[in-house]
């Protein structure tokens, strides 16, 4: 991924910045230009909380080239407490412990790196809530 492309997504990848419709309050993550609920075009920045629960998951054993060294790894859909859903790797968990409803917390992690000399991409991954 070119550095500029990743850089454009930092507000979402680093700070979980969503867009909340100023008319109907629907939260969009990632932000959109037009509200899918009321078609309003005005939004305010809203930072998502970091906790949610797993609503679906799978284990990737044959990944795309960018993630070769990480396989096998789990990917899941997380429903955040703020009622938006996002896709993230699920880490620090045994595959046999994965289940729908698992409480998770988004942690700041390395996502991938452009080889040994390129840029390192950071973002969020879901880890089971400790305790």
């Amino acid at each position: 991924m070119p550095p500029a492309r990743a850089w454009r997504n930092y507000p979402q990848l680093y700070r979980l910045e969503a867009a909340r419709c100023t008319k109907c309050g629907t939260v969009h993550f990632p932000p959109r230009l037009v509200c899918s609920h009321c078609r309003n075009r005005s939004f305010e920045t809203f930072r998502l909380g970091r906790t949610g629960q797993l609503v679906s998951y799978t284990v990737i054993r044959t990944p795309s080239a960018e993630f070769t060294g990480q396989a096998p790894f789990a990917v899941g859909i997380v429903e955040m407490d703020d009622r938006v859903r996002l896709t993230a790797q699920v880490v620090d968990v045994g595959f046999d412990e994965l289940r729908v409803g698992l409480p998770v917390r988004l942690e700041f992690r390395r996502i991938s790196a452009e080889g040994e000399s390129g840029v390192i991409h950071y973002g969020y991954k879901a880890a089971p809530v400790r305790g």
């Binding site: 880490v91 700041f108 992690r109 390395r110 390192i120 991954k125």
Partner: peptide, 16 residues
Amino acid sequence: PGLDEDTITLSVEAAR
């Protein structure tokens, strides 16, 4: 640390 943990990620979590 895991493969996806480094000084930057640990710093962010501690700072949060």
